[in-house]
C-alpha cells in the first residue's frame, strides 16, 4: 500500500490554517472569526496577512456564530474557528436558528475534536459533535484525516454555498494523502481495495484503519479501506458498492457510537443491504485526561480494536 510509506507527521489544524491563508489570497470574500484561540486554530497567519478580514470575538462563541451568520449578508464567506466543543454543543441553538434554518453560508471550523485532544480531559473532548451537526437539515459534515486533506477541504468548502461543519484535531499524525489533492464534498475515497471486509473510517481513524488492514493481511484477510471524510451527505453509492462486494463492514471514528459515522452507515445498510456492521467508536462514555495514544487504546479506538472488529464482522457474515 503506497500510503503506508508516508512518515511525515503534521497536525490537521495546521492544514486548516494553511488552507485558510491560501483562501485569503485567492478569495477576497473569505473572512475569519475566532473566539480567543487563534494560535490553537493556526489562524494566526491569516490574521497577520489579512487583519481587516479577521475578527477576534473574545470568549463569546454564541456571539461569534451570530456575527458570522450576519456577515453572509453582503456576500462574505465567514470561517469560524474554535474548539469542536465550543463550535457545536455550546452554540447549538445559534447554529440551528441563525445558520442552518436561515440557510447561511457559514463554515464552522472545529479543532481539538475527540479524545486526541488529550490531557485537557473530557470537558474539552467532545465526542458528540458529528451527531449534533448531522442532525441539522442542510448541514454538511466533514471530518478530515490528515494535514493535506484538511487543507484541501478548507479550500473546497469556500466554493460550496451553504453551512458546513469541518472537524479536525490537535495531534500530529501521519500526513499520507496527496499534497495537492482535489477535495470533493460527499465523495468517499477508496484507499485500499479488498474483498473480505469493508472498513469505513473517518478522521484520525483512517490512518489507524490502514494499519489494521495491513496487519489483517497476515491472517489472510483482504480488507477494503474507505475514507469517509464527509459524514453528511454520506456517499451511499460507495458504501453500498463496497459492502455488496465484501458482505460485511466496520466503521471507525473518534466519536460516540450514538450519532456518528457508524450510525449513519447502519441506517443505510439496514434499509438497503442488511449485512453485519461492527462499530469502532466510544461506547456511551466521556473521555478523560491522558495522551492521545493512551486514550485511543483505553477507549477501544486503536489498531487492535479495528482488527478485532473486522474479524468479528467477517465471522457474522452468513
Amino acid at each position: 500500500m503506497e500510503y503506508l510509506s508516508a512518515t511525515e507527521k503534521n497536525d490537521t489544524r495546521s492544514g486548516f490554517g494553511a488552507g485558510l491563508l491560501e483562501l485569503g489570497k485567492i478569495n477576497p470574500n473569505v473572512i475569519a472569526l475566532c473566539a480567543d484561540l487563534t494560535g490553537s486554530l493556526k489562524m494566526d497567519a491569516f490574521e497577520k496577512e489579512f487583519p481587516e478580514r479577521f475578527f477576534q470575538t473574545g470568549i463569546a462563541e454564541a456571539n461569534m456564530m451570530g456575527i458570522a451568520a450576519g456577515m453572509t449578508i453582503g456576500g462574505k464567506i465567514p470561517f469560524t474557528g474554535t474548539f469542536a466543543n465550543f463550535s457545536t454543543g455550546r452554540v447549538y441553538d445559534q447554529i440551528r436558528q441563525s445558520i442552518a434554518y436561515s440557510g447561511k453560508n457559514v463554515k464552522i471550523c472545529a479543532s481539538h475534536a475527540g479524545l486526541t485532544l488529550g490531557e485537557d480531559g473530557a470537558t474539552h473532548q467532545i465526542l458528540e459533535d458529528l451527531g449534533l451537526m448531522k442532525m441539522l437539515p442542510g448541514m454538511v459534515v466533514i471530518n478530515t484525516c490528515d494535514y493535506n486533506q484538511t487543507k484541501a477541504a478548507t479550500m473546497a468548502i469556500a466554493d460550496y454555498q451553504g453551512p458546513v461543519y469541518l472537524r479536525f484535531g490537535r495531534p500530529k499524525v501521519v500526513n499520507f494523502t496527496p499534497k495537492d489533492q482535489k477535495f470533493e464534498i460527499g465523495k468517499a475515497i477508496v484507499l485500499k481495495q479488498g474483498k473480505d471486509v469493508s472498513i469505513f473510517a473517518t478522521g484520525h481513524l483512517v490512518w489507524k484503519s490502514l494499519l489494521a488492514a495491513e496487519a489483517l493481511k497476515a491472517d489472510g484477510i483482504d480488507a477494503e479501506v474507505i475514507n469517509i471524510h464527509t459524514i453528511k451527505p454520506l456517499d451511499e453509492t460507495a458504501v453500498l458498492a463496497s459492502v455488496s462486494k465484501t458482505g460485511c463492514a466496520v466503521s471507525a471514528e473518534e466519536h460516540q457510537m450514538n450519532g456518528g459515522l457508524g450510525d449513519s452507515i447502519a441506517q443505510l445498510l439496514c434499509r438497503n443491504l442488511p449485512k453485519p456492521l461492527e462499530m469502532v467508536a466510544v461506547n456511551d462514555s466521556f473521555g478523560e485526561s491522558g495522551t492521545p495514544e493512551e486514550l485511543l487504546t483505553k477507549y477501544g479506538l486503536d489498531v487492535p480494536d479495528i482488527i478485532k472488529a473486522a474479524k468479528a464482522s467477517i465471522k457474522r457474515r452468513v
Binding site: A62, G70, M71, Q94, Q97
Partner: peptide, 15 residues
C-alpha cells in the same frame, strides 16, 4: 440572537 446577526451585517457593510 438578533444583535449578533445585526453586528455581522453591519461589519459586512463596512467591509
Amino acid at each position: 440572537q438578533g444583535m449578533s446577526v445585526a453586528i455581522g451585517a453591519a461589519l459586512s457593510k463596512k467591509l
